[in-house]
Design a binder for these strands. Sequence first.
DNA 1: CTTAATCCTACCAATGCGGTAGGAGAAACC
DNA 2: GGTTTCTCCTACCGCATTGGTAGGATTAAG
Lengths: 164, 164
Amino acid sequence: MIFTTKAEYGVRLLVELGRQANDAPVALKTIAENEGLPLAYLERIVALLKRADLVESTRGAHGGYRLAREPEKVTMDEVVLALEGSVAPMSCFVDESDDTRVLCSHVDDGEACATKLLWLRVQGGVIEALRRTTLAELVAFSAKQDVAQSDQTLGSALPLQSTA
Amino acid sequence: MIFTTKAEYGVRLLVELGRQANDAPVALKTIAENEGLPLAYLERIVALLKRADLVESTRGAHGGYRLAREPEKVTMDEVVLALEGSVAPMSCFVDESDDTRVLCSHVDDGEACATKLLWLRVQGGVIEALRRTTLAELVAFSAKQDVAQSDQTLGSALPLQSTA
DNA sequence: CTTAATCCTACCAATGCGGTAGGAGAAACC
DNA sequence: GGTTTCTCCTACCGCATTGGTAGGATTAAG
């Protein structure tokens, strides 16, 4: 069970934005360079965040993106939902309509499969974990990481960017 | 985020075995027909369960598979681990060694990415949900489904707990 | 010795993922 | 006004994985 890089990159992008205290927009190019991620791909990802009103943009020179809310008010369930489309442990769990309907292809219509109970619990566990994590927490976490890194050997920090 | 059909089919297979009270082996063909799943594919899946000592087999005519343990003692974290190889919310979370090492390709060696905290929590939520679900529960659940189906021709009597 | 089952391995089509390319609009700055 | 620097949009593409198939070898019951 795995999230795609959309979630990974999107969350990283938001963390980068969250680290900026001021409300000056940040260009995607800056973020791409900071994180070592492909710019063109990030563009498509940030579009998802904008569509979900998690991010605001200003076009033109000196433009870029900023958070639409304070990091404390951004929970990860919203973020991952915007990026991945759904939080479903099984393909038949993807909710087409607005209610969380279970559509399992291998069972009679309207019937639940034997594994419904299990996947519901897993889904609940994931959503709960996502919801209790805010962007502010991740920003603070990454800041702590930075301190730890700069405390250690600065020179021997391998520039191991696997960016081909 | 999605599990593959290996987990789905594998759990269903175990539920089918769990429904048999006696210890007579059940042929895969029977299970395939009951569940409407491709036999050849099930063969590969049940091999994973056998390798993890969740299932025992007897070859030859009148052979088949049976549970290696009572359903009460089979927890789903073991099952999913055997079927999917790992329970990792992100590709860099796949543990190659025995400890749960985080190997993130986009960060310096030994360093955690900004999203480590998040994926750790998600992974924890999933594993906890899996661990507290036993095969016996799923067997009982599927039995209840059967009763509901034969009683009222429409099994919507289940209190589907939404994203609470 | 036929039949019914587990085993094993190679193969294959489709899908989705991660990434690229090439532009068209919009605003700042000279 | 033109250039630069951004956001935006859409089409395309290689590749790995998934789900499934094929074909056979092995084992045991009757």
